[in-house]
């Protein structure tokens, strides 16, 4: 392995960490371009597979970066790309949150919290719509999403894993029924 590889990985992933406003989906195309076309760390096919794996695995979708690092440089590479992508944005976030929390209890802080809370809610709902549009499940996805929300609202203590297993079972059954 080339000795400059760790630095090349950092040079790609650190900037992506700091421009990933709106979350991981905003930088996937950029990472693909760098990893596939510019640096040839993975083939286009491998990138698609890694994307699918990071969706299948639990945790944030950005763990895609972990896989690229692991693919080119084993455990070291995995650690480098994970830290490279998560650490810079996390430090920035920590700084902001710290300033934020220092003013807790002041009137403008309460106003900020009350004012930003509906904006946060709107953003979450917007995120849901874009996830449902990207995913190929169509109407069935919407139906499952809404009924699982109703289940959870009705019985908040149900373990979410049961709900997830239910969603998988219904999809498999529907798939089998429609051939």
């Amino acid at each position: 392995m080339r000795s400059d590889l760790p630095f090349a990985l950092l040079a790609v992933f650190v900037p992506f960490s700091l421009v990933s406003i709106g979350g991981g989906t905003s930088i996937i195309a950029g990472i693909q371009h760098q990893a596939v076309d510019v640096h040839h760390w993975v083939t286009a096919r491998e990138f698609v597979d890694f994307f699918a794996i990071s969706r299948a695995a639990p945790g944030p979708g950005m763990m895609l970066a972990t896989l690229i690092g692991w693919h080119v440089l084993g455990w070291t590479g995995a650690a480098i790309t994970t830290l490279g992508l998560f650490l810079p944005s996390s430090l920035l976030c920590y700084g902001v949150v710290r300033i934020w929390s220092r003013h807790r209890g002041k009137r403008w802080h309460t106003a900020l919290e009350e004012g930003l809370s509906p904006v946060g809610t709107g953003l979450i709902l917007a995120g849901i719509v874009s996830i449902l549009q990207i995913g190929g499940g169509g109407l069935l996805s919407w139906a499952i999403a809404i009924s699982s929300a109703c289940m959870l609202a009705w019985r908040p203590k149900i373990h979410p894993l049961l709900i997830l297993a239910g969603g998988a079972s219904i999809f498999i059954a529907a798939h089998a029924a429609t051939g």
């Binding site: 499940g137 499952i144 809404i146 699982s148 959870l152 709900i163 969603g167």
Partner: peptide
Amino acid sequence: TALDGVAAAAIGLILVV
């Protein structure tokens, strides 16, 4: 298919929020 079902159900968790 199972994964699509899991993803759809997971959206329900966020819908609660």
